[in-house]
Amino acid sequence: MLTSKWVQLAVLAVLIAALPLLFPSGYYYRIGALIFVNALAVTGLVILVGWAGQISLGHAGFAGIGAYACALAPEHLGLHPVVAIVLGMVISAGLAALIGKPILRLKGYYLGVATLGFGILVTMVLTNERIWTGGPDGMSVAKLGLRELLRDMGVRVSGGVFWYWACGIVLLIGAWLALNLYNSATGRALRALHGSEVAASTIGIDVPRLKLQAFVISAVYASVAGSLLALQNGFITPDVAGFMHSIEIVTMAVLGGVGSVVGAILGAVILTLLPQVLTVFAEYEQLVLGAVMILVMIFLPRGLLPSIAARLKRKP
């Protein structure tokens, strides 16, 4: 498994590094960065949904917290955006620990609805606290300042290129951490409780605590993704925390294969790219998107990557 971890990371790194060679214009760097941000949030969901077997339909709420931490903290507290990212992570982790404790006792649909409620609550707070957040119109986000630092050092990069590499590197780190977790004692225990919670508790696993850990970790992933999104866009609206965004990242995870980090990243790639490709269908875009999802669920129920991998294995 150790080698498999490095193979996965190497493939990911090579793809991130090589893709720009194919970009016909600078616009694609922006899409690339967007893919990486989504993939980061989805990686967090792989830990929670794919390994620990807990659903969350409100994870965009944590992305919203990360995003607005980067918008609010520099403006009102005078913090550097990098510190604001960390602040967002801390708040998301704290909130996840606080709400996770009671709601992770729920199972299945009930947990889904409870997390959904959390996401909606975050959206409502962001929408209604106009004085702080600008309400539904959103607010602008201070610059990270790193690009200016690079310019002073003599390296000139455009915003799109800078964020492409920045998000790519953060995604690599996130994937590396997740793959390390997969093979650790905690990772094994997470995957075990997905199989049978009773059996997990009879071998000494503290099931509620472990679920909470997975929830907190995945919340931090979503928070960082939200922060990166806010910083690169320079502008943020409550939509980042919205229900649709929550569903989007769950869909990406399920489409690619929720048990595997690389599969989930593939899901993020497809579902970020597909709307760009489908613009030719104009108003039928959502229809085609839905049809793709249904077909994948029918013919490749374990998600794209695991299903394809299984099929390749069968053919020697």
């Binding site: 094994r188 995957r191 199989g195 049978s196 059996a199 071998i203």
Partner: peptide, 16 residues
Amino acid sequence: IFTSLSVAENLRLGAY
């Protein structure tokens, strides 16, 4: 047993 985990992983989990 934890069906999706390998045999060795099951054993290592026993020593959690």
